[in-house]
């Protein structure tokens, strides 16, 4: 008789896959509870959400676009896609990472308090990062910065040493390049 080698039971380690990060665009009917439905799926099935952005994008059709950044093995990502697709209010799910070239942007509001050299340095760094000052007093700045998540991470990292006291981030919005629509 064939003896199984592995000691695991229900978890199938037959193919060991690496964890990858994927950006999914989900077009949904903007009906009550639709976001709860999508998020509930992720918690119920143990999927990760690294970033989530949602708002109505087509007002006349009441269609919202949810952008989810998630991590998992390619098999899990495939499952997530299928699980989303079978929900009644979901029109379409697109894996932007896999489909080809796409752009991701995030906006952050970063509040930095301080005086003296640190304050001057914060303003200087903000210029380098092309962040705008949208509120200021003699004790603080609020910067608005847009860009890839990695750029925002870097900016926040720098500001940590320069008196960072608060951050608010939108989460990632993403769209494919070229003249084709989703």
């Amino acid at each position: 008789m064939l003896k199984p080698k592995s000691q695991s039971h229900y978890v199938g380690p037959a193919v060991v896959q690496d964890i990858v990060s994927r950006t999914l665009s989900v077009l949904v009917d903007n009906e009550p509870g639709v976001l709860a439905r999508v998020i509930g799926l992720f918690t119920a099935r143990g999927y990760n959400i690294d970033s989530l952005t949602v708002t109505e994008t087509e007002h006349e059709k009441h269609v919202s676009r949810i952008t989810i950044v998630t991590t998992g093995t390619p098999a899990v990502i495939q499952q997530i896609k299928h699980q989303l697709e079978r929900m009644v209010p979901v029109h379409r799910v697109l894996d932007l990472t896999v489909e080809g070239q796409s752009m991701e942007r995030e906006l952050a509001l970063v509040k930095v308090a301080g005086k003296g050299d640190k304050r001057i340095e914060a303003l200087r760094m903000a210029e380098i990062f092309r962040a705008n000052v949208i509120d200021a007093s003699i004790n603080h700045f609020v910067f608005e910065i847009t860009g890839k998540a990695s750029k925002i991470e870097q900016f926040i990292q720098i500001m940590t040493d320069l008196g960072l006291i608060e951050v608010s981030r939108t989460g990632i919005a993403a769209i494919g390049r070229g003249d084709a629509a989703m």
Binding site: L2, P4, Q78, R86
Partner: peptide, 27 residues
């Protein structure tokens, strides 16, 4: 049963109306 010892030598064809059932537990 034990999934890593499930039908180890077979090619599998799966017909299902629900795409999320496919490759969920067994490739």
């Amino acid at each position: 049963g034990r999934i890593d010892a499930f039908s180890p030598g077979s090619k599998k064809i799966h017909i299902d109306i629900d795409p999320s059932s496919i490759n969920k537990n067994v490739h």
